[in-house]
Amino acid sequence: MTIPAVGLLLVFHYVPTLGNVIAFQDYSPYDGVAGSPWVGLYNFQWLLSDPEFWTALRNTVTITAFQLVFYFPIPIVLAVLLDSVLSRRLRLFIQGVVYMPHFFSWVLVVALFQQILGGAGLLAQTLRQAGHEPWNVMTNPDAFIVLVTAQSVWKDAGWGTIIFLAALAAINTSLYEAAAVDGASRWRRLWHITLPGLRPVILLLLILRLGDALNVGFEQFFLQRDAVGAEAAEVLDTFVYWRTLMTGAWSYGAAAGLFKGLVGLILIVVANKVAHRFGEQGIYKKS
């Protein structure tokens, strides 16, 4: 039964992982791995001394940290709210609406935001008509982090509720009844039953998110890079794109990718250790 899934993992994840060896080569796709010379840590030395890389890393980490606080909790709140809607039809309708943006491409999402918040958009034109200076949030480097987070929330928060909704459905309803009989208010029930019931899932996702800390996406930033400048919008993925893919420095790009993976691995292991220390399950049960 699991063979197709294992096959998929093997073909699309484990075998390509071996390709990372090119990070230690001066690789040319026309020579292949066997024909390219080995250069040891040369690419990593270049990477760590590249100021553009540090700008990209700084932006990536800042954005991840910001989103951890302002994006990560939103699907949880949304799931709890959705779960409290009693009418099944209404709930399904709302779910449909909040899931939908997940399937939009980033070009569409950015264009939509532009139509509303851009300098020629709805907001700016309304302000102009009322005789005010338009407020152009889309080209303000300082507001960029808020803008991209808002875009992510709009696009993906609904989709993110799915796992939490499943976890909520798994909470034993008799607990709520017993608490209600004992006179616990709504807030008390949320605090003492719902949130503890969600805790393992929240922690699991939080740890996995940390492992992904250096991935904030490519397209969203690529599209809006010129609008706010590289200083604010260069993230690791866009850095890899233009510095390596566009100049044929394949090995250099692989080195940057490997660096990202290594940092992610360290974060996952550390976070999981911490979770275990606090008696939580983490991503796997400690035997």
Partner: peptide, 22 residues
């Protein structure tokens, strides 16, 4: 310069903006 061109060049189709007179 048209603001859409400044805020997201590739998402702002300037061909269409030109055709529509913006």
């Amino acid at each position: 310069v048209h603001p859409n061109v400044l805020s997201a060049k590739s998402a702002a189709d300037d061909k269409e903006l030109f055709k529509s007179g913006q």
